[in-house]
Amino acid sequence: MLENLKKEVTKIAKKADIEGLCKHKSGNFSIRDKETGYIVVTPSGVAREDLTYNDICVVDMNANVIEINNSVKPTSELLMHIYAYKTRPDVYAVVHTHSRFATSFAVLNKEIPPIIYEAVYYGGIIPVAPYGRPGTKALAENIIEPLKKSDACLMQSHGVITVGSDIKDAYLKANYVEEVAEVYYRTLSMNGGKEPPILPMTELKKWQYPSYIKLK
């Protein structure tokens, strides 16, 4: 069932491990099927190097398991994915990483402001969801308000969640989050801890493709 989506999730999960956005067994990834509404999601406790598309689980929006192979279980943070989809009906993929620079700000409970234009891709600011123990309803509930403001949020003392129209979109946002977080960290370090200039949302929204480029 939903074999193509399972393969997409597997590919992104392995890519995240290779690129350092989350290592070993950390992080989780999902896609919501537009036709059935079912969610294909990574399993709990399977190392990325061992992960195959046969390990990907299929669940519904009420956390009922529809299909499982290889005696695996869905990620323990499944409810977080479900709440993201219920909060944002426009979203069809969720990426949860533990990327190092962004997670450092999550530990500090410090949101990341829009300091470079890449921030426009996920909505400008990266808010912080209050702490919730991994796998709990509290964790899932705490991402609701931040995801109403942005396609990316930090989870206090935990990591990052991004959402998108598809898994590639959500994963690209996760990459931009880490890139902006690293620039922010380095800027603070170089500036003696003083906050750098912030691009206002009014400026971010002004960007458009240059009219002087003559397209055929």
Rank of each mutant, 00 (worst) to 15 (best):
Leu2Met: 08
Leu2Ile: 13
Lys6Tyr: 03
Lys6Trp: 00
Lys7Asp: 05
Lys7Arg: 15
Lys7Thr: 06
Glu8Tyr: 01
Thr10Lys: 02
Thr10Gly: 00
Ile12Arg: 04
Ile12Val: 15
Ala16Gly: 14
Ala16Cys: 12
Asp17Pro: 04
Ile18Met: 05
Glu19Leu: 08
Lys23Gln: 04
Gly27Tyr: 04
Asn28Val: 10
Ile31Thr: 07
Lys34Thr: 00
Thr42Arg: 03
Gly45Trp: 02
Asp50Leu: 06
Tyr53Ala: 01
Asp55Ser: 02
Val58Met: 00
Val59Tyr: 01
Val65Leu: 12
Val65Arg: 04
Val65Gln: 09
Asn70Ser: 10
Lys73Gln: 13
Thr75Asn: 00
Ser76Thr: 14
Glu77Ile: 03
Ile82His: 07
Tyr83Lys: 12
Ala84Phe: 10
Ala84Leu: 06
Lys86Asn: 08
Lys86Ser: 09
Thr87Met: 13
Tyr92His: 15
Tyr92Glu: 10
Ala93Ser: 12
Ala93Phe: 05
Ala93Pro: 11
His96Met: 10
Thr97Arg: 12
Ser99Pro: 11
Ser104Asn: 10
Glu111Asp: 14
Ile112Glu: 07
Ile112His: 00
Pro114Thr: 11
Gly123Pro: 11
Gly124Cys: 10
Ile125Trp: 14
Ile125Asn: 14
Pro127Asp: 07
Val128Thr: 08
Val128Cys: 09
Ala129Val: 14
Tyr131Gly: 06
Ala138Cys: 08
Pro146Trp: 10
Pro146Val: 04
Leu147Trp: 08
Lys148Pro: 06
Asp151Ala: 04
Ala152Phe: 00
His158Glu: 00
Gly159Lys: 04
Gly164Arg: 05
Ile167Ala: 03
Ile167Lys: 00
Ile167Ser: 00
Lys168Pro: 03
Tyr171Val: 03
Lys173Trp: 04
Ala174Ile: 03
Asn175Phe: 07
Tyr176Ser: 06
Val177Lys: 02
Glu179Ser: 13
Glu179Leu: 12
Val180Arg: 03
Tyr184Arg: 11
Tyr184Glu: 11
Ser189Cys: 15
Gly193Gln: 08
Lys194His: 14
Pro196Glu: 10
Pro196Lys: 11
Pro200Met: 09
Met201Arg: 09
Trp207Phe: 15
Ser211Phe: 00
Ile213Asp: 01
Lys214Ser: 08
